[in-house]
Computed example of a mutant assay.
Amino acid sequence: MIRERKSEKVPSSLLTTSQYDGEDVKAQLLEDQHEKCYICERKLGTDFEIEHLKSQENYSKLQQDWSNLFLACGYCNRKKSSSFDDNLCPLDTNIEDEIEQRIDFSRNKASFTTAINDAPHQNTVRMLHVFYNGKQKMRVIKEQRFFDEAKQKMNRFLEKVNTFLMEPTSANRALVADELSIEQEMLGFKYWVIRDNHLETEFKDEIVWNKH
């Protein structure tokens, strides 16, 4: 997860109808989120649903609140449901700075940690842990496939970073930089690969994303 940015112009259907999932809402969110799920950052394609940061079940008055609406993939939307209403708001938090996001290849799990001990940070960490690692000792099939996809993508990114570290040519740098563009997937995880390898200065212009 990373910080998100939302258009200041509220889609007209939110103001003129009782719907929250109008075509104009979907179109604007696809543009704002660079066609990625705001939680897992995977490209959405046709698999997208309107996700309420604070659920309809518990916060019905926010059903049409523009600041409460995001696009998520079906997996993340159903997993989140009404179980994680007290999450960080990605519009006003640099999530990639405040939550460490890593793939622990040796332990075959995703790792999420934060030094900030308040409910929104801790709740978001718990949510991400459940999505990637499951609630039980063994992941169910969808959880395993979700994690395996993330692991494969991050392994490919690590190969490019390691190649650049061994041969810091402009061509190799460009391969890493391309992986860090705002349209790319898994930027929260990639951010911590860059930090762990002390490459923040080298790629400082690429890792700003939606920060102000």
Score class of each variant (00 low, 15 high):
62 L>Q: 03
28 Q>S: 10
59 Y>Q: 02
141 I>E: 15
110 A>H: 00
156 R>K: 15
104 D>Y: 06
138 M>A: 14
95 I>L: 05
138 M>V: 15
79 K>N: 10
101 Q>W: 00
34 H>R: 12
70 F>H: 02
100 E>D: 09
79 K>E: 05
99 I>V: 13
117 N>H: 13
115 A>W: 00
117 N>E: 14
100 E>V: 11
3 R>Y: 07
131 F>E: 07
163 T>E: 07
105 F>H: 06
140 V>K: 14
166 M>A: 13
128 L>T: 01
36 K>V: 03
39 I>V: 10
187 L>E: 03
144 Q>Y: 08
195 R>W: 05
191 Y>I: 07
175 L>W: 04
115 A>C: 01
15 L>F: 06
148 D>N: 04
136 Q>K: 15
8 E>P: 13
149 E>N: 12
15 L>G: 12
79 K>Y: 08
104 D>N: 14
9 K>L: 15
179 E>D: 12
103 I>F: 06
138 M>W: 12
187 L>H: 03
83 S>I: 06
182 I>C: 01
209 W>Y: 14
97 D>Q: 11
143 E>K: 09
123 N>H: 09
101 Q>D: 03
111 S>E: 10
123 N>Q: 12
147 F>E: 00
86 D>P: 00
54 K>C: 00
79 K>F: 11
106 S>I: 11
191 Y>F: 13
77 N>I: 04
165 L>T: 00
189 F>H: 04
170 S>T: 12
210 N>H: 15
41 E>A: 05
93 T>V: 09
21 D>W: 08
148 D>F: 04
89 C>E: 07
145 R>M: 11
168 P>Y: 05
28 Q>V: 11
101 Q>V: 02
145 R>I: 06
95 I>T: 02
191 Y>H: 05
120 P>R: 01
173 R>S: 03
160 K>M: 14
133 N>K: 03
13 S>T: 08
28 Q>F: 01
58 N>A: 07
84 F>E: 01
100 E>A: 09
